[in-house]
């Protein structure tokens, strides 16, 4: 195995290894950015990802220039990364003229930083595009098909890890909500019992009393219930109807 082949193999393992306990999204993205530079004949790389609200954020970069260029893309709303995320397809401009036509401001800034070309590879799983990998190069010759294919393969492996991580985080949130709903329901019923016993009110009126107290005080029913149970809140037993 050549050194390059070895590095390719190692990179795939690194990017796929997301099930470890200390898995960190930012670290994965930094690995993807820095390995892309080493493997793909690029000078710098940056990664943008869509956030929960549908906006894009610069998440990782191999060099400060790459980060600035990506921020510039976001500020001016033009550039290969944005086109790539929107279309879900790789963006590989043929030459400088094509780049100037597509993104005049971005291309000017790109050249100021000493780069000649920029291409973007989507982070995509089936129909879902979650971001893009931007590759900045000082060489003006187009990227080879082999390098593009390898870049896409690296991006694909990283994307699977990222989507998996998002799914785990989402299901944990739902599990927490379900558990909280169950706990608060039990708490509420117990508080109704406590209040009914203390005031002599029927169960439904005890609940009305709790609810109107929560509303009047602008507080959560669950907090009121907790305080009724531990005795720190005593509500008057006047019939409220």
């Amino acid at each position: 195995m050549t050194t390059r082949e070895q590095l390719v193999a190692e990179t795939f393992v690194e990017l796929a290894d997301t099930l470890v306990a200390e898995f960190d999204v930012i670290e994965l993205l930094h690995t993807l950015a820095s390995r892309s530079v080493e493997l793909l004949d690029a000078s710098a790389a940056g990664i943008m990802m869509s956030d929960q609200r549908g906006g894009l954020t610069v998440m990782a970069s191999s060099a400060e220039e790459a980060r600035l260029l990506e921020l510039y893309e976001l500020q001016n709303n033009e550039g290969p990364c944005l086109d790539c995320v929107r279309s879900g397809e790789p963006v590989v401009p043929a030459d400088l003229a094509a780049m100037r036509t597509a993104w005049p401001e971005f291309t000017r800034r790109l050249q100021e930083f000493g780069f000649s070309t920029a291409q973007a590879i989507p982070l995509r799983l089936r129909s879902e595009t979650i971001g893009a990998l931007n590759l900045f190069r000082t060489s003006s010759t187009p990227m080879t098909q082999a390098d593009l294919a390898l870049g896409q393969a690296l991006a694909d492996v990283a994307t699977i890890g990222l989507i998996q991580e998002r799914a785990i985080a989402a299901s944990q949130l739902l599990a927490e909500q379900l558990q909280a709903a169950l706990n608060s329901r039990i708490l509420l019923e117990q508080a109704k019992g406590v209040l009914a016993e203390r005031t002599g009110l029927p169960m439904d009126q005890a609940f009305q009393l709790m609810r109107s107290h929560a509303r009047n005080q602008g507080r959560r029913l669950g907090d009121i219930a907790t305080e009724i149970i531990d005795g720190s809140l005593v509500l008057a037993g006047a019939k409220t109807g």
Binding site: R185, E189, Q190, G193, L195, A196, E197, I229
Partner: peptide, 19 residues
């Protein structure tokens, strides 16, 4: 289960103990 939790609340007051 609601009635059991309500009864639990009432009993906790009757006996002066935690739910």
């Amino acid at each position: 289960r609601a009635v059991v939790h309500q009864a639990t609340g009432m009993i906790s007051v009757q006996l002066g103990v935690s739910p």
